[in-house]
Design a binder for these strands. Sequence first.
DNA 1: GCGTTCATTATACACCTGTAGACTTAAAAG
DNA 2: CTTTTAAGTCTACAGGTGTATAATGAACGC
Lengths: 199, 199
Amino acid sequence: MNAPEGRSAKAAATRAAILASARRAFAQHGYEGAGLRGIAEEAGVTAMMVNRYFGSKEGLFGEVVHDTMRDPVILSPVNLAAADPARAFAEALVGLTGTEATPLDGFLILFRSTTSDTAARIARARIAEAHQRTAEGSVAGEHAAERAALLLSLVAGVQMMRQMMQLAPLAGADPAVLAGLLTPVIGLLLGRVSAPSQG
Amino acid sequence: MNAPEGRSAKAAATRAAILASARRAFAQHGYEGAGLRGIAEEAGVTAMMVNRYFGSKEGLFGEVVHDTMRDPVILSPVNLAAADPARAFAEALVGLTGTEATPLDGFLILFRSTTSDTAARIARARIAEAHQRTAEGSVAGEHAAERAALLLSLVAGVQMMRQMMQLAPLAGADPAVLAGLLTPVIGLLLGRVSAPSQG
DNA sequence: GCGTTCATTATACACCTGTAGACTTAAAAG
DNA sequence: CTTTTAAGTCTACAGGTGTATAATGAACGC
């Protein structure tokens, strides 16, 4: 496909391949369930390359999490700039297909890796971070912290029921219907009342 | 503490001890993360007792899931018989402390075990089952299937953010506040409008 | 009493895990 | 060409996993 120019370019490509493979593996099998040999094989190299480029499995996981969580998780400011933030939010949540690499991949990785103490600590810190960002920037009204937490819970729950449990009405239903149902709920949690607009 | 009468009574006690230990272990570390030796040690026996009583690790997991999921998961009919179903539902959800064995332990076990293909299949079937029960028995109005799925997502999300991610506003906040915030949300999803009643 | 039965343990096996060190191989520099 | 440098692999090790088989030891029926 693309011919690398030098050895260092190839090295960077290998590193990226490992990272991509690791992201998929961690999202699917969790921290403990994913094996270095499997990750390396999917990247086309040996398991030792992981240790060469990332020091250890823990180091690789940290890099993956850092990489995936770099962009603001869900509540990107673009949603709030819309005329109807709740509807924009709902549509953004529903619109994510979940099959490809989405910003919510990070959620899967974090939740699937909570069984490991090492990964759980990282995951909790990331979630608390996202929560604080949500509470400060997106939620209005009283009990903003609680509202933000519930909003985060809803997003996480929907994503899990869809991606992990493959619940039919969420995985294969009409996105418009889901968005319509979610809009008032999210509006309630955001503290910004949105027009019902159903009928 | 309690003196067993015979050897068969002691055997039953051992079996129960293994089952209880396994439930805790699976809920905390997931299917793959939990080790038979650890489960057995916490039950005060050797790892081989697990195979003796349950055949294999997979058999043990199946028994644990069956045992935990025996009672209706969350939407017990008692909630719907209340004067304000949404509020009763919200209070029931918030009231679960999560530290002891609750009906929602099953959720944790299922979600934590989705990394294993074997366990994932069982988990999906159980969730689909709970969804159908919810959609048919508790949710009113149009798009009952989608509403039930979103309600299940909310419950699962709250429980995860609290038990797995230990998000502060959910893990340690005032239950009354959370219930007050959740009531209208749940009412919206149930399709039964509940009185605001926050004055 | 003896012999049987069954709960329980001890030992062992084959496999998998993450990782360390020595080795190979190919690209760059002289 | 030769030498050097770094990417990549091979082999191996210590520890863990689930599990099968053999041995132990105490409670039961006779």
